[in-house]
């Protein structure tokens, strides 16, 4: 029963969604709206579970004084502090989300900075990964390497100074060979999605229900 009901909901829901795509009638639209109305509700409740999980794990860590337990405070305090500052803390005491407020300040000067820093690490990691991995080991690898160099130079103004052909070749690589390869992978991915969806709708693939579906 624990497996049958979810499988049936998926099958009926999946078939109805396929059918409604071809049926413009009001009844079909209402069924679709009915389904989509459920989505935010499910998301909202799942978020409660998510926050519950995070809180449970970190309070366990603090209680057990597990390794690096101090960091758990760095998770829990902002997790509950930020919503309080945004929605409960009185506006007269710099609460609320509008600037100027503690929430706005923390968002702009802590969260934005930290996230931008994380993304900036990409530049460092790309350099390190490119140094280690880009080798002209074979003919194909050499083509890849040369294309990478041309596209990289073509994307920046210095490429323009080295010669007009560089950005033009770079753009040509992006517009044609890149597009062809991308489209080929997209087609494969598209059919993969179709097959996976059919397997799930018709209960062939049940691993998502837990375990190996046996």
């Amino acid at each position: 029963m624990k497996r049958t009901v979810p499988l049936m909901i998926v099958m009926v829901g999946g078939i109805l969604m396929i059918l409604q795509y071809f049926i413009p009638h009001q009844i079909s639209q209402t069924v679709f709206a009915y389904y989509t109305d459920w989505t935010p509700i499910i998301v909202a409740f799942a978020l409660v579970l998510g926050v519950g999980s995070l809180t449970r794990i970190h309070s366990h860590k603090i209680r057990r004084k597990a390794k690096n337990w101090q960091y758990s405070y760095a998770v829990l305090i902002p997790l509950f502090g930020m919503p309080v500052l945004a929605h409960i803390w009185p506006v007269s005491l710099s609460g609320g989300m509008e600037s100027p407020s503690i929430f706005h300040f923390t968002f702009m000067h802590v969260q934005v900075s930290i996230q931008a820093t994380m993304f900036s690490l990409l530049a460092f990691y790309i350099a390190s990964a490119a140094f280690r991995a880009f080798r002209a080991k074979s003919a194909l690898a050499t083509v890849l390497l040369l294309s990478a160099v041309v596209v990289m130079l073509g994307q920046v103004p210095i490429g323009e100074l080295l010669g007009r052909w560089l950005p033009e070749t770079g753009l040509w690589i992006l517009r044609y060979p890149n597009l062809a390869a991308k489209r080929a992978i997209m087609l494969g991915v598209g059919f993969g999605m179709l097959a996976t969806n059919l397997k799930i709708i018709f209960g062939v693939e049940r691993n998502w229900l837990g375990g190996t579906g046996k």
Binding site: A123, F131, M152, Q155
Partner: peptide, 10 residues
């Protein structure tokens, strides 16, 4: 500058 350095590293 960053692209040039990466190419140099490669």
């Amino acid at each position: 500058a960053a692209h040039l350095l990466i190419i140099l590293l490669i």
